[in-house]
Amino acid sequence: MPINSDQLRTLIVQPVLAALNLPAPDVAENLIMGTAAHESHLGDYIKQVGGGPAMGIYQMEPATLNDCYVNYLDYSSRAALKTVVDGFLAAQPAGPDGSPDKAAQLASNMAYATAMCRIRYYRAPGALPSDPNDLSGLAAYWKQYYNTPLGAGTVEQFIADYNRYLG
Rank of each mutant, 00 (worst) to 15 (best):
P125D: 10
A63E: 05
D67L: 13
T148H: 12
V49G: 14
Q144G: 04
R120D: 04
A152G: 13
P149A: 01
P53M: 06
R164G: 08
A113R: 12
M116E: 09
I3L: 12
V27K: 01
L150Q: 14
Y145T: 08
P62A: 08
N30S: 14
K102G: 00
C117H: 03
D101C: 08
A63I: 11
A140W: 04
Q14R: 10
S136Q: 07
Y58R: 07
L8K: 07
N4E: 08
A152D: 05
S136V: 14
L89R: 10
A124R: 01
G151T: 02
P132T: 03
P53L: 06
N66P: 00
Q92T: 15
T154D: 07
K143N: 02
I119Y: 10
D67S: 15
R123A: 06
V70S: 09
K143Y: 10
N30W: 02
Q105E: 12
R9N: 10
S76L: 15
L128N: 07
C117N: 07
R118A: 06
L106H: 11
N21Q: 04
F158R: 01
Y75L: 15
Y58G: 04
Q59P: 06
D86K: 04
A127W: 04
G137M: 00
S77C: 02
A28Y: 13
N66Q: 13
H41D: 00
V13G: 00
M33A: 03
L150I: 01
A91E: 12
D6T: 15
K47M: 04
K102Q: 14
L17E: 09
I3D: 04
P129W: 00
G56N: 11
T35F: 08
G34F: 00
L20D: 00
P125Q: 10
T64N: 15
G167S: 03
